[in-house]
Design a protein around this nucleic acid. Structure first.
Length: 407
DNA sequence: CGTCCACGTCTAC
DNA sequence: TAGACCTGGACGG
């Protein structure tokens, strides 16, 4: 599930698996991939990773100061040894299905389109696996210039980038569509936009500028200077002992995060799920599925946005709802299974308002990799309507946007 | 068997 | 604003 959190977890995965591991030889690309060759070959090199929004950067670093020639496919002319880079960055985008795996050579996964070989006895391979091949990589790459700051790890600049460009025409669009614009929301994807808007109680098809203009004033007070990169609620509290008024603001910020803050907090929650959100080895997404409150959740509504992407939401869609848009086929693919009609309503440790989710789609419980004992506890409410959802769990108003939206 | 759907960009009318 | 780019899983006949 490659959105910002999965890309970051992929970078953690690479760093964990490749720590202390020595790679060797050329980087191999599959025949079928249309991406560029990675012209790096070295007798001994290491791999580290970092992420930014929906990109991962692998850094290949030769261990010795004089890299050796070995790239069979390097078409370099003349002098050879000097041409080899000592370090190379390769920047990946994951498309719809990309991920990294680290296996022995004999167990190379299908669709492993870029491979890094270790110098070990039974050779192991770090590989970029991408069945649909929408992913891409760039040798000697940099973070894509057109993408904005990372919603997860560059929160302050992300926020400023949005709020200082609200005159941009892209904010004429519905908020749910703008949330997929990587120039401003680098890291947000289809499930995150649903989860974020659901928690903020903002209808998806309200004009983005209308939603975001309200957030500007909150940033204006000069007391805000002290706020830089609120890393945690605790940090915030200790920092603001002095100003009573500020304490209130921060409390409100912590207890009732606005839309942009949710664009930061919600992906961070997925990262905290850890392997449950991204773990190629144990192919277990049950934790992640349990975490979802809206996306593909039974009882939630869905319609196609102007770009044909499915928007999951609860309640009113908002004034900019596409005309003639219909909800995609109701997701009732899988048959009834009495064992999985229940799910746990867990309390989260975040300050974000938790609300009982609508009951899970039956589909979840039937996935082969879902352990059933995890999915029980709460009586199912068949055919639950959104009205009943709201009634049993009124969410906090997000403050300044909710009144803009017709119901 | 066939159809629909999927966690995302890209470029071309 | 369509398509193009792809494979594969779920579901229906």
């Amino acid at each position: 599930m490659p959105e910002g959190p999965e890309l970051h977890l992929a970078s953690i995965f690479v760093n964990r698996m490749c720590s202390g591991v020595v790679f060797t030889g050329p980087v191999q690309k599959s025949e079928v991939s249309k991406n560029l060759e990675v012209p790096f070959s070295c007798k001994a090199y290491t791999i580290t990773a970092s992420s930014r929004g929906k990109e991962v950067c692998l850094t290949l670093t030769s261990q010795k100061s004089d890299p050796t020639l070995g790239g069979s496919r390097r078409p370099k002319t003349g002098q050879v040894d000097q041409v080899q880079p000592q370090t190379m960055n390769v920047v990946f985008r994951f498309g719809m299905s990309g991920y990294f795996r680290f296996t022995v050579e004999e167990e190379l996964p299908k669709h492993a389109h870029l491979q890094f070989y270790t110098n070990e006895k039974p050779c192991r391979v770090l590989s970029f696996v991408d069945p649909r091949r929408f992913g891409s990589w760039q040798p000697n790459g940099t973070w894509q210039a057109a993408r904005g700051p990372c919603v997860m790890f560059q929160y302050q600049s992300f926020r400023e980038n949005v709020l200082s460009h609200l005159s941009d025409r892209v904010f004429d669009r519905p908020i749910c569509e703008v949330l997929l614009n990587q120039k401003y929301f680098n890291g947000i994807g289809n499930y995150l936009r649903a989860e974020i808007l659901f928690r903020s109680n903002i209808p998806p098809f309200v004009m983005a500028r209308t939603v975001l203009e309200g957030l500007k004033s909150k940033d204006e007070p000069e007391e805000k200077k002290n706020l830089v990169e609120l890393s945690s609620k605790v940090a915030v509290k200790t920092k603001v002992k002095k100003e009573e008024k500020m304490e209130v603001n921060l409390e409100e910020e912590a207890e009732n995060p606005d839309l942009l803050r949710l664009c930061n907090l919600v992906p961070l929650e997925v990262i905290k799920l850890g392997g449950k959100g991204y773990d190629p080895e144990k192919n277990d997404y049950s934790g992640f599925k349990m975490w979802l409150r809206c996306y593909e959740v039974d009882g939630m509504r869905s319609i196609r946005d102007h770009n044909g992407r499915t928007m999951w939401f609860m309640g009113a869609p908002g004034p900019m709802t596409p005309k003639g848009s219909k909800s995609p086929k109701a997701k009732k693919r899988l048959k009834e299974d009495p064992d999985v009609k229940h799910r746990i309503i867990k309390k989260t440790s975040t300050v974000i308002q938790t609300k009982p989710k609508a009951i899970r789609n039956e589909k979840e419980g039937r996935r082969k990799y879902v352990s059933r004992q995890e999915v029980r506890g709460t009586p199912r409410r068949p055919g639950q309507s959104r009205a009943s959802c709201s009634a049993e769990a009124p969410r906090r108003r997000s403050g300044r946007v909710s009144q803009n939206t017709p119901s």
